[in-house]
């Protein structure tokens, strides 16, 4: 990130991503608000890959400890976010009868 052009390219990309995020869900019906919040909660679970890099490239024991915590939290975000979203959306799957969960 010492390279200024790279930094600016990243800013361009971030701006376009912001529009994408806005447009992609702009017509979401109210009933999907909860699953969509849960789904986007899952997507920011991509923090896990950053956490893996932080732990994997950690130089000191302190960095290792913090990196380890980051991976634990990130992994919980990913799996929990996925399972919660999936469980909610199964309810909307009208092709098959909703069955009671164990």
């Amino acid at each position: 990130m010492n390279d200024i052009p790279v930094f600016w390219i990243a800013i361009y990309i971030a701006m376009l991503a912001a529009f994408t995020g806005y447009v992609v869900i702009s017509r979401v019906p109210v009933i999907l608000h909860t699953p969509l919040m849960s789904g986007s909660n899952f997507i920011h679970g991509v923090v896990l890959v950053g956490a893996m890099a932080a732990l994997g490239l950690a130089a000191t024991p302190l960095e290792q400890v913090i990196g380890f915590v980051a991976v634990v939290l990130g992994a919980a975000n990913v799996t929990g976010g996925y399972v919660v979203t999936e469980r909610i959306l199964v309810m909307f799957d009208r092709s098959k009868k909703p069955k009671k969960e164990a």
Binding site: A10, G21, S40, V47, G50
Partner: peptide, 27 residues
């Protein structure tokens, strides 16, 4: 923002994070 903190930017984090930030704000 954390996506910027690596030696080479982690674009997966930057893009996914910004998309969630924008979509989440709208929501």
């Amino acid at each position: 923002l954390d996506g910027f903190s690596f030696a080479t930017p982690n674009y997966a984090m930057i893009i996914a994070g910004i998309i969630v930030g924008a979509a989440g704000s709208l929501l």
